[in-house]
Design a protein around this nucleic acid. Sequence first.
DNA 1: TAGTAGTACCTTGACAATCTAGGTAGTGAG
DNA 2: CTCACTACCTAGATTGTCAAGGTACTACTA
Lengths: 110, 110
Amino acid sequence: MPTPDTKLLQGTLEMLILKALSLQSLHGYAIGQRIKQISEDVLKVEEGSLYPALYRMERQGWIKAEWGISENNLKAKFYKLTRAGRKRLELEEESWQRLADAVFKVLAAS
Amino acid sequence: MPTPDTKLLQGTLEMLILKALSLQSLHGYAIGQRIKQISEDVLKVEEGSLYPALYRMERQGWIKAEWGISENNLKAKFYKLTRAGRKRLELEEESWQRLADAVFKVLAAS
DNA sequence: TAGTAGTACCTTGACAATCTAGGTAGTGAG
DNA sequence: CTCACTACCTAGATTGTCAAGGTACTACTA
């Protein structure tokens, strides 16, 4: 239940990560920052949600990881979208549109 | 994760129920039907989700139940919104707007 | 050179919402 | 008298997220 100040809409995390990576390869930590920034501080991805999600997605083959060095000279794992991930993103976006539209329809009913 | 054909957006069920009841008092079974109908078959509320949600919400004081007889002459539990429930609905709608907007913002980023 | 703030990763355990899959019982139509 | 449908209910499993902890490295500043 979205207690009036949830940080995420449940079920959208993977889509948001895929979307962030579709613009640019990023390391894990940066993905969280990016989502927070683009959403203007509304969406906050806790690390305890982020990293498990990244493993799930790598296991599924949507993303691929590679160790590198961050902007700040620190060891960091960079993720990039795979072809399968790009397809998956499309699916999730469609599904989100359908469902969000449906929710709006119910809220607009009178 | 919204497997491309989830029935609900997680976390929206209580809001949808509150909204349905804000238009008209209904019995449990009818709430599910109504949501399905208004959303044009996109949102499907499983009974295993619906009834537990109704108990939670009654415990919270958002809704009140009363036994009665349905349109089909069957024993049925009718729910109506309380003042607290009406307030709660407002809160959840605001919260949903904020979060859905944020998600759209991320999806629109480039 | 010691301390601190920040970056970047990771894990464990708990919790809450939803779904699956069962069940009961009554009504009304054929 | 059977079948489809209405209407309620519950148990158990799964899943996603969060809270709260942790490690280790860099860069700054005092």
